[in-house]
Design a protein around this nucleic acid. Structure first.
Lengths: 193, 193
DNA sequence: TTTGAAACAAACAGATTGGTCTATTTAATT
DNA sequence: AATTAAATAGACCAATCTGTTTGTTTCAAA
């Protein structure tokens, strides 16, 4: 029953294009060409470009949270180590890509925040999923004693995610590695009990 | 010698539109209509849309840094108080606008980061200007003793700006006020000596 | 008052965009 | 083998977009 193409492949290509050039700058022609499909196929799989965009967002979100969950529940490390390790991996990834690609969720949330309610919901939903993956790890660290209890777990989680996202913004704005390093240094300080 | 229109007015209108709907979603027609000018005038003032975009960015940057400088050099407060006060003002501003408008620089840097070298440069330049306004205040606070010396002034400045920008990202992603509150709470903690 | 350059106005053009339509092929099911 | 629905292909269309052109008005300097 193998069809020539499947949705996942197309979503993956779209994800790469959106991550590199943004949503509006990427035309359906480019997506179609890159994915090696025809217009007919594209519009058979997706209602319209916005529908595709939302599905790309969710695809990215699910893929990300799944991965983060495996690292953040790794019993070989304590909660603080897991957090630090996860961000080490992320930073290394951006370095490998030469700091050219940002975070899809950050990018699209800014570009499409107010454009279409479906996007607003999708961004909100996915960021909240991120929080839902991080917070238990933060809370566990606070309970075990390796992570600061000066603020409640949700506040600290939001602050960490904010600082990380902001570091990615600065990174993509041409400051390259430095903001990421500053983030990592500060992360260590703010986790300290 | 007052002409009917001037560049500043058009830049201001464009700034509002870009801040609300993004660069690509805002057509030149919309800009022209909103500013109450004709195509001819627009292309008389600006080489093309990208040129206009860069000028909007710089206009926003200059306006912002000027304002921040006045608050961050207010001798009536100590450095830490100045920082906290400035962000209080910003947060209040976003609240007044119902969290619908993000930061132009954050938004455009994400949308246009890799699109056109002029944008890359403009974003980098303006963010670096922000750092240049914040860092002296942070350094002064470290010297006077009101602000943490656990990290050097540039690192702390970058971390603060990152966390602030990231909080704005989360805010615009539909989480509204909460990320800003988390940012402010965490800011207080990370400034502590 | 003449002149020339900048500012203004709006019709226009060329390219691109997202999306539709019709027709054909594929593959699973009966 | 026949049937059916999904998948594929690509020509096509209407709308929109940026940018140009042509011509008029303004205004300050000569």
């Amino acid at each position: 029953m193998n069809r020539k193409h499947n949705k996942e492949d197309i979503l993956r290509k779209g994800m790469a294009l959106f991550r590199l050039n943004g949503y509006h700058k990427t035309g359906t022609n480019e997506i179609i060409h890159e994915a090696g499909i025809s217009r007919g196929s594209f519009y058979n799989f997706f209602k319209d470009k916005d529908d595709f965009g939302v599905q790309v967002l969710d695809f990215y979100g699910i893929w990300s949270t799944d991965y983060m969950k495996t690292v953040l529940t790794d019993k070989a490390l304590n909660p603080k180590q897991r957090l630090v390790h996860l961000f080490d991996i992320f930073v290394q990834g951006y370095k490998t890509e030469n700091y050219k690609w940002g975070c899809l969720l950050v990018g699209m949330s800014q570009e499409l925040g107010q454009v279409n309610p479906s996007f607003t919901e999708a961004c909100h939903r996915n960021f909240e999923d991120f929080v839902a993956v991080f917070e238990p790890c933060v809370r566990a660290g606070q309970k075990e004693g390796g992570i600061s209890k000066k603020q409640d777990s949700r506040t600290l989680t939001l602050a960490i995610l904010a600082m990380y996202n902001g570091a990615l913004v600065l990174m993509k704005s041409g400051m390259r590695h430095e903001p990421l390093a500053a983030f990592q240094e500060q992360l260590n300080l703010m986790l300290e009990p």
